[in-house]
Amino acid sequence: MDILVYGTINSIILALMSLGFTLVYSISRLPNFAHGALYIATGYTVWMLLNSLELSYPLAILIGILGTAASGALIYRFALIRVRGMEISEVIASYAIGLAIIEGLRWGGLRGSTFTLPSFMSGSITFFDVSIDYQRLIIMVTGFAVFVMLYLFTRFTKTGLAFRGIAQDERASMMLGIDSDFTAILSLAIGSGLAGLSAVILLPLGNIVVETGYNVLIFSIAVSIIGGLGSWSGVVVASFIIGFAQILTEVFLSSHYQMVVALLAIIVTLLIKPSGIMGKQKELEERV
């Protein structure tokens, strides 16, 4: 039973981490390799606001997420816009920015295990003999809420519909008056905001350490490749596969193998079905 419960929680954590990455890729075809850096930067910003400026926790969180969203938009506006369309350069540019942020934080003093964010609520409940703390419960609820809100956003608002149009056929959307650069800026802002949101609710589970930035990036890439690049339903499916695989290895082997599982899953996916689990439709299109 705890495998089921903690597997589900772990899967939702993975889905939250990688959702921002997939969202940006599906809309703008931009691989945002600064995703992990933005994640950890949000955590550190919130910590600073809490401890140096002594703001209230909710306010710090709000500023942290909005700040990350804004930096995502700025990254596109001033860096990625110049290399858009050159795939390798997109990867190099965004990764360089991510690297600069992460190593900058390390240089700026984010070392050791003294940085923690308080959890929103302490305590736990028991659910079928498994005890779950409130923070993990909040994560589950937020995960569901984010997915529902994104679904509603992309189907019932004008901007969301423009996103869906651009994601499917950029040029046809332009002909209908949708600005591709504007949607890209917006998608990066939302994607980065999601990275920030997941950082704020996931980081209270542990310490804020810079290495998390790299791990988040690797997990996001693993989830998006296995789910099929740019497929949202793929994110959910892949998160559950990796999430449960990780919990199972933790139970039966050792927690050191968590990263190995994710990377192994990438290799297996690329060998068996390179387009990913939910990448079917795109694969078909390419063949036609």
Binding site: G165, Q168, D169, R171, A172, Q281
Partner: peptide
Amino acid sequence: PERRRIFAES
């Protein structure tokens, strides 16, 4: 456009 370019998944 030519060849219609419908949003196939919508």
